[in-house]
Amino acid sequence: MIDVIAVRGAGDQGNAVVRVSEALAGCLGTHTCPGSSEHAEEWPANAVAVVGRSDPDAPWLHLARSVRQPIVVTPSGVPEDFEVRRVLLPLDGTAEAAHAVETAVALLSGAGLELVALHVFEAGNVPPFWDQVGHEEDAWEQEFQSRFLPGQDIRVVARSGVPGALVADVAADEGADLIVLGWSARPVGGRARTVRSTVETTRVPVMLVPLPRPDGTIGPSGTDQRGAQ
């Protein structure tokens, strides 16, 4: 059984945290329980924690870097009837992204949600060839599905631009209720910029899924300051 821990701090986001926690608990078929960031090390290993984006008592970035569990960063202004029906999974071909998708699929596959994968073409990953506009994206999408979403019924959406600036917009365009991002707990680098930008600008909750290290462990990365993903 997965616990959804509602981390309520000071400020006006308490209600949003509760609404998101309850909605997630509904998806996962579990229950919510209150929690505190001060006792994060006591959270069960299979918990999902929900925190407010601008909660001064539980700064999300600090929390995301120090816990092993996925955390859901919630903006204020979540509607009272908030439900999770569609989930956006940004995928950039990195290990973080692949792990986030795996985790999201494992967590949410039984909940009847629609999963939408997003790939953003940018300078570093643009394909060398794009022969015929009327055909190439079909070929590309089929291959992308096979490589990164094998066996999954997940729609793929592609965009061009800067991922950090695009994810929130696409989430809005697609009507996503939740964004799931892989998170290597490193504070700098392209993915860190994407994560921070997305969390700060989106109007929907963002689930950050920590990436296991090569030894399989997950968690605080105090000594890992290599930066780039």
Partner: peptide, 26 residues
């Protein structure tokens, strides 16, 4: 520009570029 069984043009009228739906004029 694109041909299949009959020799009529079978070029799609729309395609995608980096996720943008665009008219195909080829």
């Amino acid at each position: 520009w694109e041909s299949a069984s009959s020799g009529d043009d079978v070029t799609p009228h729309h395609g995608h570029l980096g996720g943008r739906r665009v008219a195909v004029l080829t």
